[in-house]
């Protein structure tokens, strides 16, 4: 089943951001808005384009996620590391 969230980086800090259900870009992936339809994707793509044009974010892209007991987690290890930080201290 297709489930995606929109992620980007903050222009100023470089921190990873995820587009959240409260329509802001947040540094917490757990609050990300998961979309499951192509219409939602298109709509949010336009939102992202505006945010890029407004210089709020850079490099937006869609990533695949899954829902494990109500918690969103990215399918790709790379995206999980972006969400949780380096696995080494």
């Amino acid at each position: 089943m297709f489930m995606k969230v929109l992620t980007a980086n903050c222009l100023l800090t470089g921190h990873p951001l995820w587009y959240s259900s409260d329509r802001t870009w947040k540094e917490d992936m757990k609050k990300a808005l998961a979309v499951t339809s192509s219409e939602e994707c298109s709509y949010l793509t336009r939102i992202a384009e505006k945010a890029v044009a407004n210089n709020e974010i850079i490099g937006a892209l869609w990533i695949d996620v899954r829902d494990s007991n109500g918690i969103l987690s990215a399918l790709r290890l790379r995206e999980r590391i972006r969400a949780c930080g380096p696995t080494v201290v």
Binding site: F2, K4, C41, A48, A53, L61, W62
Partner: peptide, 13 residues
């Protein structure tokens, strides 16, 4: 639809 890759952001050329 297939999975979307990186979005193309058209610069306002």
């Amino acid at each position: 639809m297939g999975s979307l890759e990186r979005l193309e952001f058209l610069e306002m050329e």
